[in-house]
Design a protein around this nucleic acid. Structure first.
Length: 545
RNA sequence: GGCCUUGUGGUCAAGCGGUUAAGACGGCGCCCUCUCACGGCGCAAUCCCGGGUUCGAUUCCCGGCAAGGUCACCA
């Protein structure tokens, strides 16, 4: 078989010398130890929490080491392409503060582009042609039907499925047969002629999983599809070589195809990058757990978190605690240090699948939000309301001074301890709604109507908005006493049978009357913010009902 | 089914031949307190199973079992 002639027939025309590509994409001039990592999504337009998970790891590793992280778009499968997807990816990552140095529409150094695989067709073909010329790749004319039939046959015989060994029919086609097929205009793909043997085990060092054993590849995988575009495997080898990637952090679903990649790098004569296979984010699904799936778990799209109004930094902190087991401890000790100072490392990444824990995220969210100033919180809430809130909620921001007073109270700013009532923007907006709207009563009075009205009436009679907190509470105590409630908690606890209840119960009545809720931050401050007119109006309404 | 990976409380996990087996989230209880939130204190709960090796295994070895991933002209 004349391989050179075959290569020319299959991919006619002049291609640059392969060495020209080495010159065009020279090794990067980076300090020792600097890692070049990448995020290489396919443009499906759907950004998943899993994408963010792996993106943060790549970003941290690159930048911790003084290296580069770039964005490459894997658009070799046009069936999956969605308009505006790249923009969506970039927006989502920007929201979570993931910064790229170069890549698709990033605007950095363009030496190693193009960053869209479809625009790199020539390089791929040049190398495919080279492989064919060397007899390491060959055309395959099998149809989809034939391949399906083959798979069924193998399954029935309980043999390993795929195109390999004796089943690799087109691998052994004679020269005449090949040209006859070509002359007949049959469509073809190019397959790698694998030299591997699954009986051989390869020791491999994974940056995350440690030393692992993989089985040598013997599948004659497709490297160039019939449309002349490479498959992922081939594009990965070419791109990560010429973009000079040093470390590939990717999901562990890729581990199974690692042998293919190893053989490809060898066949191409490329030094391979190091790999780290990251565990997947799992979800409890009934009795078992499974990998988060974009199809089945729409609530785990990044959009879900933005709609709920999760604070971006909280999500990032949570991802970091899952990613590096020692992060949480470090963060506890350095609550105010920039996240960039944490010494992130691939080897600290978890080996096993992680169950996504919303409780934990919520806890982190409360903590992160409690660190904000009233101004920062206001800006965060406003940003959320503008995109996802109701007209009424947007209206809350009309009186900025009032908003800041509300937030100062609800966050406990100025007090000894910060409150942690806020978890997400949507929940916080509901929490503060009582200051801006007469919301429906959420909790019921626990006393009869007569007692309730007597308490409210008593308070209204004594109420003076110029009272300070102490004077105000003294009056609440008076109202309590006048209505048969204990003014002092200690007295009440000592002899509960002597009273209808305690001052706590009286405060609760007033609280529900003023806000509709049994539990709120400090009532005196709430009344101050509401103002005398509104406070009186609400209490009078409550007494009528 | 083949191959690969993983297996410490409900969850995330530290551990790396001898420990009362850290810590965080969640749960429960108590304290603080006009409610809530915060904070403080405390409680319950874990080494997948079976064989070895060893004076001694959560830790090392072997074998099971279980879970997850993957077996495309998708990435």
């Amino acid at each position: 078989m004349n391989y050179k002639a075959l290569a020319e027939r299959l991919l006619p025309g002049d291609y640059p010398e392969l060495s020209a590509y080495e010159t065009q994409y020279p090794p990067r001039d980076l300090p020792k130890g600097a890692e070049v990592t990448r995020l290489a999504p396919s443009p499906t337009g759907f950004i998943h929490l899993g994408n963010l998970f792996v993106a943060i790891a790549n970003e941290r590793i690159a930048h911790r080491s003084g290296g580069i992280m770039y964005l490459r778009i894997e658009d070799t499968d046009l069936k999956r392409k969605v308009e505006g997807a790249v923009e969506a990816v970039k927006n989502a990552l920007r929201y979570f503060d993931i910064k790229f140095d170069e890549g698709a529409e990033i605007g950095g150094d363009d030496t190693y582009g193009p960053w869209y695989q479809r625009e790199r067709a020539e390089i791929y073909r040049a190398f495919v042609k080279h492989l064919i010329g060397e007899g390491r790749a060959y055309p395959c004319f099998c149809t989809e039907e034939e391949l399906t039939a083959l798979r069924e046959e193998q399954t029935a015989k309980k043999e390993i499925t795929g195109y390999y060994g004796k089943y690799a029919k087109c691998r052994n086609l004679s020269e005449e047969e090949v040209y006859r097929n070509l002359d007949a205009g049959k469509p073809f793909v190019i397959r790698l002629k694998s030299m591997g043997d699954p009986a051989n085990k390869i020791k491999f060092h994974d940056e995350i999983k440690g030393d692992i054993t993989v089985t040598e590849n013997d599948q004659d995988v497709v490297i160039l599809k019939s449309d002349g575009i490479p498959t992922y495997h081939f594009a990965h080898a070419i791109d990560d070589h010429f973009m000079r990637t040093t470390l590939v952090i990717r999901g562990e679903e890729w581990l199974a195809s690692l042998p293919i990649h190893l053989e490809l790098f060898d066949a191409l004569g490329f030094q391979r990058p190091r790999y780290g296979h990251n565990c997947s984010l799992m979800k409890q699904d009934g009795e078992t757990r499974r990998k988060l799936s974009k199809r089945k778990d729409p609530e785990l799209s990044l959009e879900f978190y933005r709609k709920e109004g999760y604070f971006a930094r909280a999500v990032k902190v949570y991802m970091l605690t899952l990613l590096n087991s020692n992060f949480e401890e470090w963060y506890l000790k350095n609550p105010d240090a920039p996240l960039e100072e944490f010494k992130f490392s691939a080897s600290k990444m978890s080996k096993s699948g992680t169950l996504f824990d919303l409780d934990k995220l919520n806890d982190i969210s409360k903590n992160e939000l409690s660190k904000l100033s009233a101004e920062e919180m206001s800006a965060f809430l406003k940003g959320w309301a503008e995109e996802y809130g109701s007209d009424a909620q947007r209206g809350y921001f009309g009186d900025e001074e009032k908003m800041l007073r509300v937030l100062t109270l609800c966050m406990g700013i100025g007090g000894k301890k910060r409150r942690k009532d806020f978890m997400t923007a949507s929940q916080a907006m509901k929490f503060i709604s009582i200051f801006f709207e007469r919301t429906p009563r959420e909790d019921d009075y626990r006393v009869d109507r007569e007692t309730k009205n007597a308490v409210i009436g008593g308070f209204l009679g004594a109420y003076d908005p110029s009272d300070d907190a102490q004077a105000w509470f003294a009056k609440v105590k008076q109202v309590a006493e006048a209505n048969g409630f204990a003014a002092e908690m200690k007295e009440y606890k000592a002899n509960p049978e002597n009273y209808k209840g305690s001052v706590a119960d009286v405060a609760e009545i007033l609280r529900i009357a003023a806000t509709g809720r049994a539990n709120t931050p400090d009532l005196w401050t709430i009344m101050q913010i509401l103002g005398e007119e509104e406070t009186r109006a609400r209490l009078k309404d409550a007494a009528k009902a």
